[in-house]
């Protein structure tokens, strides 16, 4: 009896190729996952939410939505969006070139993509500020043209583009590598123009990965602080939301800081949710 059921289950396993329990210890792994997530992710979020709940709502609302806070969100969101768009476009191009073409120095370039990951963001901010300041390597040529890359909002976008670049490239690369060039050849054989091949064959396959890269670099930019304090020059006109949090803390205005932090948390949460839904929507196009 027991043997029969074992054989049956084995047979079922072979048939479906995805048995309900491929690895042993489901409960243990689930338990560990939840425990780990609770400590690392949920606990800080819950602590922030709890702290906010203890404060009077009207005051929290006022502090989260006053003119200064709104200006900070606008800059944070606007600059992050701009940086993520730039990265989605040029990051995709970079990934395409790195995967599809062979040229000397390719591996070195490929390694350089990870540089913004490894570099401490404060160093990145300092370096960029030096580079674009009116005496810097690039700044001395750009400033006379009216392009000020340091201590301006443009500087904020530049820094956010820098820190977000790897996300765009690295999410797209594996998808590009697994893309079968045979499909493109088939499209060409069937008489599709280059544009048609791109629009109907390549783009739909890459879209989910590009969207993920866009979302990741957007989320990364929203939370960036270290590089911005240097390149923004700490001026009121370049105040991003994380800077506002720090400034409020410096005034011992803990309530005000929590209010902004809460709004940022809701932004990030909403962003990730939208991203997941978009991916689900984009995945439909991949079905044959």
């Amino acid at each position: 009896m027991r043997e029969a059921s074992l054989t049956r289950s084995r047979a079922a396993g072979v048939e479906s190729a995805a048995p309900s329990n491929p690895l042993p210890g489901f409960r243990l792994t689930l338990g560990f996952t939840i425990f780990y997530l609770t400590i690392v992710v949920l606990a800080p979020i819950a602590a922030l939410a709890l702290k906010a709940l203890r404060l009077p709502w009207s005051q929290l609302w006022e502090l989260a939505t006053n003119q200064r806070a709104l200006a900070a969100y606008a800059l944070s969101l606007g600059a992050s969006l701009a940086a993520a768009l730039v990265n989605a476009l040029f990051g995709s191009l970079l990934a395409w070139v790195l995967v599809r073409y062979r040229f000397p120095g390719r591996r070195l370039l490929d390694g350089l993509i990870d540089f913004p990951f490894a570099l401490p963001t404060a160093v990145a901010g300092l370096t960029l500020a030096d580079l674009f300041s009116s005496h810097g390597w690039l700044g001395q040529f750009l400033t006379p043209l009216g392009i000020k890359g340091a201590y301006t909002r443009l500087g904020v976008v530049i820094a956010l583009t820098f820190v977000g670049l790897p996300f765009s490239v690295r999410t797209l690369q594996p998808v590009l590598e697994s893309l079968d060039t045979g499909v493109e050849e088939a499209a060409a054989c069937l008489g599709a123009s280059r544009f048609r091949t791109f629009a109907s064959v390549i783009a739909p396959t890459l879209l989910p990965a590009i969207l993920t890269g866009f979302g990741l670099s957007f989320a990364r930019a929203l939370g960036e602080y270290g590089s911005i304090v240097f390149i923004s020059g700490n001026l009121p006109k370049t105040e991003i939301a994380p800077t506002l949090i720090v400034m409020r803390l410096d005034q011992y205005d803990y309530t005000g800081a929590i209010a902004v932090a809460l709004v940022l948390m809701i932004f990030s949460f909403g962003l990730l949710l939208t991203l997941n839904m978009l991916q689900g929507w984009a995945a439909k196009f991949q079905e044959p």
Binding site: Y151, G233, N234, L235
Partner: peptide
């Protein structure tokens, strides 16, 4: 107005 950069 004359201060272009304010450090921390």
């Amino acid at each position: 107005h004359n201060i272009p950069v304010m450090d921390e």
